[in-house]
Write a protein that binds this DNA or RNA. Structure first.
Lengths: 334, 334
DNA sequence: GGCTAAAATGTAACCGCTTACATTCCTTTT
DNA sequence: AAAAGGAATGTAAGCGGTTACATTTTAGCC
């Protein structure tokens, strides 16, 4: 690969001038600009962005850390982040943290050492303090799914508690008085918040909370199946099932059908997230909309604004969950 | 961020020695290694990987280019690639090409200028010659979904024609004699191959090919819906629907239901890809297994073997599509 | 202890680019 | 026409590492 040196040689100018035309910085006579561009064309020159980063101390790349790459949820987020950043010529380095503290820290370390100009994080395992420390030590961070007062302007979040509350309330309003809940992992903040929303809805409508009607999962499909089996084994009857995410709901429904029930006649099920495949399910899954793509876009815009000085971007930090009623929930007894 | 210079200062050794302990290269006395490690710990030192890349001319990162980031298909692929590479300390830079020639070339250029040690490509728009040129010019490339004789050892592929043949044959064997086909984009090679498989199955079973029973889509859901509407409008009756991928099948099924038909009684539908959500559909979608995650893993292994000299990896270049029969297809009239 | 070879460590050039500052070249002004 | 000032270009010092090669230390042996 040709270097800037060869270009300057061929064009008969100095390194600095070539650099100026590459970066459109400083003053360059149209004539010499043309000479340089011709030389670059002739050599098929592309600047070595590693060297650019090292010299300029910015890399035009932003690091993204998500829990998982597979599955429906984070793909949407990554897609919107890449789209938004790419429109401004920035690029994306992606790592998966697998909700493991070591791995999350390791990934962050990698992204930082990789000179990412900023980080967009959707993390679970790492503590709030770790994130604020990172932020306060000068690393530019946008956070999705957590709200930290010290860096509120860079947090993009949604009210999980309220979302689960809405979901639960919708079933109660359909006449269901016996509800079961498949919770997310209770060591994760959103898992706790969603559980709290479930309980609040029960409490507000004077319904008792029964531990036997709750099973904890880990947001993955198989855990939804296991949770459903456990719920059925306990033989406490219920007519409505609230799930902390769509994927577990899909898993649970497999088990529901295995045991001979029909949706929504024998059981109303509601999920959470509104991932794309919920509308392919039959009956289509009722759920709570979690605008993850839009949230990713907002995180990207935070970065564009704070780090790259792009102006005039509309940014929303807080999103409201919304009920999406579809065929999987129905009036009790209908 | 501390630099190697500060570490050497604090440890009272030279830059070279610090570099040696970082890279475990050359001989270092246990005592001085300990001194250096202590200094690194004290300073919270992390090597600047940009500088390492520039100096050593390798970046320990591999670039991945996929058509899209959202959707079920490429997420699986990215997940397995990241897992495999990460196990060897390599990292992943991801870009989306959106099946557009300019964007694909631009992405490749970026990844190259980013000093990626290798590229894993799943591209559509760019020509075969472009890829082989890239390969022959010394860029390390692993190709998913295309088979180029000049670089067969670095191609990971599957027989699309055979897959679509199997899908079509399965419907014929269930007694269906009137089949419709929702094709993939016919300018993409896999779109053509799948179409060819559909036609071969018809021909082998003495069934005529009727253009009115074919509608072209672009692999996205909405195009599946549109295609289905077109097919219905033409009023040529059919009892079996073959789709070039699962996502379009899911879209088509929405329209099927809108028009009052029940699956699989009134229509048998089969997809292609076996993306994860097909088992959540109801009836679950029959399809052709396309082991995209495994193929991504193999591409990663190609890179590990060729570029990083990892030995003893089992690598498969060619995969066979397999029929997955589920509830969306049934015996005609059953 | 003195000599030598091997092992450990140090020196300095280099990777390809950016950028502060120095220099040269035009214009303009008087 | 000479001086002044601004525009264009050039020079060279980094950015933070790696690595070939030089130098020093250590160890082994007689």
């Amino acid at each position: 690969m040709a270097t800037i040196y060869e270009v300057s040689e061929l064009a008969g100018v100095s390194l600095a001038t070539v650099s100026r035309v590459i970066n459109n910085s400083g003053k360059v006579t149209p004539a010499t600009r043309e000479k340089v561009e011709a030389a670059m064309r002739e050599l098929g020159y592309r600047p070595n962005s590693i060297a650019q980063s090292l010299a300029s101390n910015r890399s035009n790349s932003v690091g993204v850390l998500v829990p998982e790459l597979h599955g429906p949820f984070f793909g949407s987020m990554l897609g919107s982040i890449e789209d938004e950043l790419r429109a401004y010529g920035k690029h994306v380095i992606i790592t998966a943290g697998h909700s493991d503290e070591e791995k999350e820290k390791d990934s962050i370390g990698f992204l930082v050492s990789r000179q990412c100009d900023a980080l967009i994080l959707h993390v679970y395992a790492v503590s709030n303090d770790f994130v604020t420390d990172l932020h306060e030590s000068g690393t530019r961070v946008a956070l999705i799914g957590r709200d930290l007062p010290q860096m509120a302007a860079n947090c993009i979040c949604i009210d999980n508690e309220q979302g689960q509350y809405l979901a639960t309330k919708s079933l109660i309003e359909l006449g269901h008085t016996q509800l079961a809940y498949i919770a997310g992992p209770l060591w994760k903040s959103d898992g706790q918040q969603r559980m709290a929303g479930f309980r609040r809805a029960l409490a507000e409508h004077g319904q008792p909370f029964d531990e036997r009607c709750v099973a904890e999962g880990n947001y993955q499909e198989a855990s939804g199946q296991r949770a459903m089996r456990r719920l059925l084994e306990r033989r406490v009857p219920f007519t409505g099932l609230v799930c902390a995410n769509d994927v577990m709901a899909a898993g649970a429904i497999v088990v529901v059908r295995e045991s001979g029930m029909t949706l929504p006649r024998d059981l109303s099920v509601i999920g959470f997230d509104n991932v794309f495949f919920t509308r392919y399910m039959h009956p289509a899954l009722s759920t709570i909309n979690y605008p993850i793509a839009e949230m990713g876009q907002m995180a990207a815009r935070c970065v564009l604004r704070d780090v790259y000085g792009v102006e005039g971007l509309e940014i929303r930090n807080r999103f409201e969950p919304q009920l999406v009623s579809r065929g999987s929930t129905a009036l009790l007894g209908a």
